[in-house]
Nucleic acid binder design. Sequence first.
DNA 1: TGTACATCAGTGAACGCGCGTTCACTGATGTAC
DNA 2: TGTACATCAGTGAACGCGCGTTCACTGATGTAC
Lengths: 200, 200
Amino acid sequence: MINNDNSVNIKNPRAAYHHGDLRTAVVVEGLRMLETSAAETISLREVARNVGVSAPAVYRHFPDKSAFLKALAAEGMRRLARDQAVAQSHAGGEGFAASGRAYVRFGIGNPGLFRLIFASGLGGEHDLGSDPEGSAGWMLRENVAAMMGGGADPQQSRVLAYRAWALVHGLTLLILDNQINHDEGIALIDRIVSADSIQK
Amino acid sequence: MINNDNSVNIKNPRAAYHHGDLRTAVVVEGLRMLETSAAETISLREVARNVGVSAPAVYRHFPDKSAFLKALAAEGMRRLARDQAVAQSHAGGEGFAASGRAYVRFGIGNPGLFRLIFASGLGGEHDLGSDPEGSAGWMLRENVAAMMGGGADPQQSRVLAYRAWALVHGLTLLILDNQINHDEGIALIDRIVSADSIQK
DNA sequence: TGTACATCAGTGAACGCGCGTTCACTGATGTAC
DNA sequence: TGTACATCAGTGAACGCGCGTTCACTGATGTAC
């Protein structure tokens, strides 16, 4: 294997990665591999190989493989939330629908990462109301609250929130799993995820 | 390993399974394992072991592992469609919503099988309109057509169909992935998948 | 400025694992005469 | 009814594979004196 810019200098192992740089490099490579591969098919050994480092080196930065995957999922969660926030801030009155569409587009654009974020066994049990600020669940809750106004029936709020979330989540996966034709699905995102389909 | 009723008599290999019975036994065992395990974690060797047969024996009935998984998925598809049809026929005017709820309940009750059905790389590219009669996609199309009456804009029909499908598909997976609390999700199925949330 | 030393992120070798699949085989079955 | 034979669903042994992880190690770094 030929060394590239991300690889470590054989004679001086610490030079390229002191201060946790290998951790970063490994995460970056993991995210890159997720662009074309499913998380379950990614092995620590291959990530290490691609980075130009021996497999055991990774264990200096992660206790085990699942910790590594969790780091990727966390980064994915951040990016998804960021995309949604940006879309929402750029939209006028239809911010909620805009953030939903951003959710779908993120999933379609990042299949491996999107699936990893929601892979059961990694995180889970978000439950609206307990999400960290800025996360998808948090934004969902904020949006529904704003939509309903002050005196909303809390259970009805949850129903609306779940309905909206389910709509965009399901649409994303149906397209990713090729149950809905990819191009047609993309073309119809705006009509499927419309303001009235989400607020009613 | 102790032989059970599904196992083959060692002295007389053909006695238990002549006429393709091993194929059936293997599929039954696969479906049983899917009740508690994800499809990716199921190995041909373990299935064979559980059935009481050597691993190569399975290759008399399936060319390879993926053919075996496809057989499980096909059976799952049949069961899902059957559940939906039953629910729909027992419902009054709200048949569409009823079949949607049945979809969600099927997924919650059969996590491994449900996921396998939609696993990318196995089937895919259903595309409304090309589904075999009785399948989920077929029923979806029929329902939307009935709902819209005769003179429906075909593209709008597709939008409604995809919206309904996405709603129930997403709800199912959010519950399975523990993004929505399991018990709360189940309790809210009827309200989330309501007639008006699906037809509008 | 020079020296001794502790630290710790890397290394290559090795572990046990279970997998999918192939192979040459065996022996019960059903069939033709 | 008896015998020879083709069929073919099973068998156990073996293949190569890549994996996650552990191990004892090395050698560059930064620090204390």
